[in-house]
């Protein structure tokens, strides 16, 4: 059974069409990346899955149940970190963590204290004095210390500094190793999803553009290479996986598919490399390419 099964989901806010036939399938036990630019409909999808909002069309199943009608029973089995975490300003971080834990049915105190330590969070501070990142940590500690089947995390690292982002990745990796938890992780940062997820679903403008394992999507990730070479450039254009080659005397710029990176670099080294920069693709480039490929998607 899949943990999440969404097909053809539609949701409008007045004239804005937030979801326009979105599909999403998360298998039990996997870490699933839900990737898309801002405004793609990730949060709306999650809210429908949590029974906070009602869809206008399509179907959504969560842990085998109806997310709207069975909300309160399903919620016993999941923990949620909203995208924009706001906390009660008068409560301390520790109070919020305990409250949310109790609302979910219990707190694992050892796990809670361990996570507080790892996220370097002072639970005595009042929530109003926390920065966005610290508020996010409070919600993360509360969710990660809950004994639940499913974690729903909406852009959980958008306020964290790189150090804390690494801690977060570590914790999620550990979760994946124990293997009895499903994680739905929304993000607009490709590298984060790459680092953590078994499978990803890419959405844009309320529709699913692509879904599959990361390896299967490898063809989507192209690296842009700029190099200054020792000799004349030849034989590069004919290499499979090299796209958009431009040469200017001994300077070359081209995009290369990730799985063709190795032969392309060997070729360059054969000619002799004076300087080289590589840039991973941005999410936007990924989408642009995707749309060029499937204009009807």
């Amino acid at each position: 059974m899949s943990a999440v099964e969404v097909t053809g989901l539609v949701k409008s806010f007045g004239r804005t069409k937030a979801l326009d036939g979105l599909d999403l399938r998360v298998e039990t036990g996997e870490v699933h990346g839900f990737l898309g630019p801002n405004g793609a409909g990730k949060t709306t999808t999650i809210r429908i899955l949590l029974g906070l909002m009602r869809s206008d069309g399509g179907s959504a199943r969560l842990l085998g149940g109806d997310p709207w009608a069975g909300a309160t029973t399903l919620h016993r089995r999941l923990a949620y970190v909203p995208g924009d975490v706001t906390l009660w300003p008068n409560l301390s971080g520790g109070e919020v963590i305990d409250l949310l834990g109790r609302l979910r049915g219990g707190v694992d105190r050892r796990r809670r204290d361990e996570l507080l330590e790892r996220f370097d969070l002072d639970p005595r501070k009042k929530a109003r004095t926390y920065s966005k990142g610290n508020r996010q940590k409070v919600a993360l500690v509360a969710a990660l210390s809950a004994d639940v089947e499913l974690l729903v995390l909406d852009e959980p690292t958008s306020g964290l500094d790189p150090l804390m982002e690494e801690v977060f990745r570590e914790v999620v990796r550990e979760e994946r190793q124990t293997g009895d938890r499903t994680v739905l992780l929304s993000s607009h940062i490709l590298s984060e999803v790459e680092a953590l997820c078994d499978r990803v679903t890419i959405v844009r403008a309320g529709r699913t553009v692509e879904t599959g394992t990361l390896a299967g999507l490898r063809h989507l990730t192209r690296t842009t290479i700029t190099a200054e070479l020792a000799g004349p450039v030849d034989g590069l254009a004919t290499l499979p996986g090299v796209h958009g080659l431009r040469t200017d005397d001994r300077r070359v710029i081209f995009d290369v598919d990730s799985d063709a990176l190795d032969p392309a670099l060997r070729k360059l080294v054969g000619i002799g490399v004076r300087s080289l920069t590589s840039r991973p693709p941005t999410l936007e480039e990924l989408f642009l390419r995707q749309y060029r490929k499937e204009p009807t998607a």
């Binding site: 016993r76 909203p82 975490v85 609302l103 729903v152």
Partner: peptide, 11 residues
Amino acid sequence: GHAELVLATRT
């Protein structure tokens, strides 16, 4: 947004 936190629990 506080309501969302609470309503996503079994409340």
